[in-house]
């Protein structure tokens, strides 16, 4: 049984000028201890899918239209009473954001903020909680934690704040850590430190991690499996090796070919024509079709079935690949 099983998650925003179909029928599973990457361009619905799981969507205008998200085979996160959800959020599922300041209170000492969940969720006394907090700061590589813990968030550098966030997130030893672009605002040398840190703590605690990023390099370095998102839907889902070496969706391939880091100077980069779709427009069929090099009439027809099994657990939403009409390996020879 998977640790988390998300089915047909659909989150829309009802705006004055239309409905933004931010997440539109997303299904995936997360196993104990594994790292699942969610990659996609800006606005593809990565963050909204994660926030939906933790009841962090502003409602209104947001609304979860459909779907289930079952944790440990017992609780549906999308229907659980607020009280139950609050307990899960502090204890079993934790989250780290891109900007640590969005989840750190600037007016409170780090110590106050760190011991809070322990007092509430673990029923520890002040002394014991403080000891645990100091310990978890040391575990994320903060030297002199006994003194540092009494500082305020602004007294830390960006990299240190993200370490504090990770320490706070892991302090209750959650089963799932959701990390939404945790290193995007950091310098690469600091990013490398934070990625190593998350990996090490994950190994020690056996936490499953959902890692949200737009950076395929980061995905390649940290994930076991990957969901590639576009326009609120999953285009392809598979192991990192399947996604990078055996991709079964033209969008995944196009994304990989547009990254400059692998290119030789002088050769032009691959570019995806056009722009991402307007999510307020109703569509039928494949959302990537208008920009796809392999588009055919039936891609937008009634036979389009969204994400489906390609080989074993490797899934693709490309109808032409599913129907055996398109072999991307052959095409790229």
């Amino acid at each position: 049984m998977p640790l988390l099983e998300v089915n047909d998650l659909t989150t829309w925003f009802h705006m004055r000028d239309g409905i933004v179909r931010a997440v539109d029928g997303v299904s995936f599973t997360l196993d104990r201890g594994e790292t699942l990457g969610i990659v996609g361009e800006s606005g593809s619905g990565k963050s909204v899918s994660c926030y939906s799981l933790l009841d962090l969507i502003p409602k209104p205008p947001g609304r979860i239209e459909r779907g289930t998200a079952v944790l440990g085979g017992e609780v549906d996160l999308l229907r659980a009473p607020r009280e139950v959800l609050r307990r899960i959020r502090g204890k079993r599922i934790a989250m780290v954001f891109q900007d640590p300041m969005t989840s750190l209170n600037p007016y409170l000492r780090i110590s106050t903020q760190m011991i809070e969940p322990l007092l509430i969720h673990e029923g520890l006394g002040n002394r014991e909680a403080l000891r645990r907090a100091i310990e978890s700061l040391e575990e994320v590589g903060i030297h002199d934690a006994v003194r540092q813990i009494d500082l305020y968030p602004h007294q830390f550098s960006g990299g240190m704040r993200q370490r504090v966030m990770i320490a706070m997130a892991l302090i209750t030893h959650p089963e799932i850590l959701i990390a939404d672009e945790p290193t995007t605002a950091l310098d690469v040398t600091v990013q490398a430190q934070i990625l190593e840190l998350i990996k090490a703590r994950q190994r020690e605690l056996g936490t499953a991690v959902i890692y949200v990023t737009h950076d395929l390099g980061v995905i390649a370095g940290v994930c076991d499996r990957v969901n590639v998102m576009y326009a609120g839907t999953i285009m392809e889902s598979g192991t990192v090796d399947e996604i990078f070496y055996n991709s079964a969706h033209p969008y995944t391939q196009a994304l990989q070919q547009s990254i400059p880091s692998l290119h030789d100077k002088g050769k032009s980069l691959y570019t995806i024509p056009g722009a991402p779709p307007d999510l307020t427009e109703e569509r039928s069929g494949c959302p990537f079709a208008p920009r796809c090099a392999y588009e055919e009439a039936h891609c937008t027809g009634p036979n389009y079935r969204g994400l489906d099994a390609f080989r074993g657990r490797h899934k693709t939403a490309c109808l032409r690949v599913l129907e055996g009409e398109l072999n991307l390996k052959e095409e790229n020879r």
Binding site: Q191, L195, G217, A220, G221, V240
Partner: peptide, 12 residues
């Protein structure tokens, strides 16, 4: 250079 993540899982 060594901190840049490369979109290549085997290399990583």
């Amino acid at each position: 250079v060594s901190a840049i993540p490369f979109p290549d899982p085997r290399l990583e």
